[in-house]
Simulated assay, not measured.
Amino acid sequence: MFGTSIHWTTFFYLLVDTVIVLFTLYFSGKKPSSNFKRFLILGLLFVVYNATGGFLPTDNFPGPFILQYIITYSVAITLCVYIVYYLYKEYDIVVLKFNSSIRNLAIFATASYITLFLVPYLITGSLDSARILFTIPISVAAFVFLFIFYRRISNPSNPNAFILRRNRLSIISVGSIALLPICTVIGDYQWLTFTVMNLAFYAITTIEVDRYLYFIENNNRMYEVFALKKKQKVEAIERKIFYEDLTRREIEVALSILSDLSYRNIAKDLFIAESTVSKHASNIFKKTSVKNRREFLKRFRKKKK
């Protein structure tokens, strides 16, 4: 396509991902937050991944041929590690200890790439042999992580439609990472490899849209909680301010508390430690000017009568 090696499907994904990034830039400009920044970085990585993987290798590229593979593989490794980081940071989906999953994952992937791909390729000159040698340990590690991840989030104690959807989409994202090495060793089939990987981005994008709609659906409920006084309520209506002081995770915890779930059950549903739920709850109570959970529920229920 265009006299390059890029396949039309890869070019299509490149366009779609670019539109999503521009859309995110527009909204992040209206309401800056670390959440938008993380998603923006994820989107930009996918754009770079599609562009480098689609247009490279090419005969017109300056420098040694292997440099093109260093670029494409480096981008792919960075993207995969960042997807795991994103799931951990945004949704508190912790499968292994944070350092083990992020820092060591990056070290393991980079070391494997250098020792099992670059070195064998420089010695033998065989791209296929280097790919196979590199793919074996990476594939094993990826599928072990996918198995642990699946077991960790597949059985919530109190199923919630929103949480269940998020978990399933998260599994699709991690599954795409696990399948990438296999797609790579099969051959240069861009329509297959880039479809698998872009599914991860579209799954996470769907999660974010679904979470936004979930918050809108519960907007009135949360509004009643934070409009504790009539004066505050009037000011909130005039300014159209709705629970902006809470993080997105705190809103999820607050909604769970209002559903009379215990901290233990909230922790199981959101796949976080009970101490983390308690910490979020303390922040919620502080921001809503109440002393504890009992006062939080009492004041809210009083508003509902």
Rank of each mutant, 00 (worst) to 15 (best):
A106T: 05
A106H: 08
A106G: 00
I107A: 03
F108M: 03
F108V: 04
A109K: 08
T110Y: 01
A111W: 04
S112L: 03
Y113M: 04
I114D: 00
F117L: 05
L118G: 01
L118K: 07
L118R: 00
Y121T: 09
Y121Q: 10
Y121N: 00
I123C: 04
I123Y: 15
I123K: 13
G125S: 05
G125D: 05
L127F: 15
S129N: 13
I132V: 12
I132K: 07
L133T: 14
T135M: 13
S139E: 02
V140E: 08
A141T: 06
A142N: 04
A142K: 04
F143A: 03
V144C: 11
V144L: 13
F145R: 08
L146H: 10
F147W: 15
F149I: 09
Y150T: 15
Y150A: 13
Y150I: 10
R151M: 14
R151W: 12
I153R: 01
N155D: 15
P156M: 05
P156V: 09
P159F: 02
N160W: 02
N160M: 06
N160E: 12
A161W: 12
A161L: 14
F162Q: 13
I163E: 09
L164Y: 14
R165P: 00
R165C: 01
R165N: 12
I172F: 12
I172M: 07
S173N: 08
V174D: 10
S176H: 01
I177M: 06
I182G: 03
I182C: 02
T184W: 13
T184V: 10
T184E: 07
T184M: 10
I186V: 11
G187S: 04
G187Y: 10
Y189D: 05
Q190P: 03
Q190M: 04
W191T: 05
V196K: 06
M197T: 14
L199T: 10
L199G: 12
A200Q: 04
A200F: 08
T205Y: 15
T206V: 02
T206L: 06
L213K: 11
Y214M: 10
F215I: 14
I216K: 15
